[in-house]
């Protein structure tokens, strides 16, 4: 179980601040499929008073990155876009374990 999930993640993280409403995830995910961009992982959570969310998109660091960023900036509900090369990607591979927390469901 653990060996499979623990494969090392590669890529970089695009950090988005977005307006927190039901359609935002569709707009962001839709952009990736519509433009043929790869999306390796998404983490998302609300911030502050809940009117905004922060999304962390794990993507490949390739020639498409510039166009991905530009297209994300055009989305109406995307407030800011930044590229993070210094983030610890281990979270994406640990996510299944971390989600279960200390309780052992299995």
């Amino acid at each position: 179980m653990q060996t499979k999930n623990a494969k090392t993640m590669e890529g970089i993280v695009i950090e988005l601040e977005v307006n927190n409403h039901a359609g935002v995830m569709s707009h962001v995910a839709g952009l990736f499929s519509r433009r043929g961009f790869n999306l390796e992982g998404i983490l998302c959570g609300s911030i502050g008073d809940g009117s905004k969310s922060r999304m962390y998109l794990l993507v490949r660091d390739d020639e498409k990155l510039e166009q991905i960023i530009k297209q994300l900036r055009k989305l109406y509900d995307v407030v800011s876009v930044s590229v993070r090369r210094d983030y610890d990607l281990a979270l994406y591979s640990r996510i299944h374990e971390d989600n279960k927390g200390t309780k052992n469901f299995t």
Binding site: A22, G23, S26, R34, Y76
Partner: peptide, 14 residues
């Protein structure tokens, strides 16, 4: 309608 028109509009609202 909202979901179907995401990729073909500049922006859409429900």
């Amino acid at each position: 309608t909202y979901g179907m028109t995401i990729p073909i509009t500049k922006h859409n609202f429900l």
